[in-house]
Simulated scan of single mutants.
Amino acid sequence: MDIAVLTFDGFNELDSFIASSILNRMKQYGWNVQITCPSGFVTSMNGVRIEAQQPLEFANRADAVLFGSGIFTRDIAKDQSILSRLSLDPNTQIIGAQCSGTLLLSALDLINDVPACTDLTTKPWVQEMGVEVLEQPFFAKGNVATSGGCLSSQYLAAWVIWKLSGRDHAEKAIHYVAPVGEKELTVEHCMSVLKNYI
């Protein structure tokens, strides 16, 4: 499986790195999880500069694509020089977005007439685009999902694993990263959030 974690300038480290780390628990099964960017290097909202593992076009052939959020996402959602490089198909790909990444799904016409989740700051901007915003951490319809809140990245990652490789693998991935003493509780809660969207 090829997995693209879309990461742009001003990105939120929690979105890209947590999702990437959880998804990489599937590396032993041949999963290829890549930080995917529109340029060779991007800098996070807190000044962390990283090198892209793949160019943006990698997302077009990936089995799953996750959009992270960031402080410049509202501008990126209007930037055709970036958006035109993406050609995603929810009929053949698993696609998810976190927080302000929901703006990009809307800009790419991937959540037409479907409610979505996002963070509190982004909520009015998503509503301006005509999307109903839900007061919950995760929602999916078919192969497209959205989540709200930095730590909701665990739901997106677990959803992708569950969709592509089954619940058992999703549970094991979340169990691995969950806090000691809270592992079973964390897995149970995560699965309860996702179970209606598989």
Rank of each mutant, 00 (worst) to 15 (best):
S153P: 07
N32G: 04
L108S: 10
E128G: 08
N143A: 07
G30N: 06
H189P: 05
L110V: 13
V48E: 00
F139S: 12
I95P: 10
L6C: 12
F41A: 01
M45C: 09
A59Q: 01
T122R: 06
Y155A: 05
G148A: 08
C190M: 03
C190Y: 00
F11Q: 10
N60D: 06
A178L: 07
E182K: 08
E132P: 03
E128A: 14
C190W: 00
E57S: 15
K195V: 11
K163M: 11
A4M: 08
L194H: 10
V126M: 03
C190N: 08
W125H: 15
E13H: 07
P90L: 09
S87W: 10
E132Q: 13
D9S: 06
I161C: 01
P55N: 11
K27R: 15
T92D: 02
I22D: 01
L156V: 12
L108Q: 09
Q154V: 15
C117A: 12
T122Q: 04
L104M: 14
I198N: 15
L66K: 04
Q93S: 07
F11N: 11
I71P: 01
V114C: 11
C99E: 02
T121P: 02
M45S: 15
A178F: 05
V133D: 02
S147I: 07
Q93H: 07
N46P: 04
K27H: 13
F72C: 12
R25T: 13
W159G: 14
G96I: 02
S106V: 02
T36G: 04
F41E: 02
G148Q: 06
A4D: 04
E182R: 08
V131S: 04
K172C: 13
L14R: 11
K163P: 08
V177S: 10
D119P: 05
S100M: 06
A157P: 07
A145R: 08
K141F: 08
L164F: 03
A64H: 01
I174F: 02
E128C: 11
T121Q: 07
F11A: 13
A77R: 15
F138G: 14
F41Y: 04
S100Y: 05
V144L: 05
G101S: 08
H169C: 07
V133P: 09
R49Y: 01
L185E: 04
E51G: 14
A62S: 14
P124N: 02
V144I: 14
S20I: 00
C117M: 12
I18K: 08
V180N: 09
D75M: 09
A97H: 04
S39H: 13
W162T: 09
I76D: 00
V180R: 11
L105H: 08
I71N: 07
S16Q: 06
T122D: 01
F41S: 03
T122C: 09
T73G: 01
F67M: 05
I111D: 01
I174S: 06
D75V: 10
S87N: 13
S192G: 10
A52T: 14
L66H: 03
H175E: 10
V160M: 12
V65C: 03
E51I: 04
I76N: 05
E171C: 14
S39T: 15
I18Y: 07
A64W: 00
D109H: 15
E51Y: 00
C37I: 11
F17A: 02
A178M: 08
G166V: 10
S106K: 15
V133S: 09
W125Y: 14
S84L: 03
L103W: 09
A140V: 09
